[in-house]
Amino acid sequence: MASEEESTVKEPLDLIRLSLDERIYVKLRSDRELRGKLHAYDQHLNMILGDVEEIITTVEIDDETYEEIVDTWRCRRNYHYSRD
């Protein structure tokens, strides 16, 4: 009974429940991406991720040539709580 409840997918967030303890990819606002192991989440999609890699993509305009310079930032962190 309990195991059946654990494995059924009735609503979108059930799919996220099945990703507990898996490495997941999260796309955030303002061109940010996270990869990390999902340890906890709630109905607002607040999350706790472990061993996180964050990628921030920024586009800068060069002062002289007005060229777009695409820059990606990578950083690794151990534990991380991310808010909705």
Binding site: R17, D42, Q43, I48, G50, H80
Partner: peptide
């Protein structure tokens, strides 16, 4: 609270098993 993007946690602040249980309980309740 509404302006927070991340909180970087202390490495010893995470008991993974407790978090998993709490998350499953929360998922059932919600």
């Amino acid at each position: 609270g509404s302006v927070v993007r991340y909180v970087q946690l202390p490495p010893d602040g995470v008991d993974i098993d407790i978090l998993h249980d709490a998350t499953r309980r929360e998922a059932r309740g919600g």
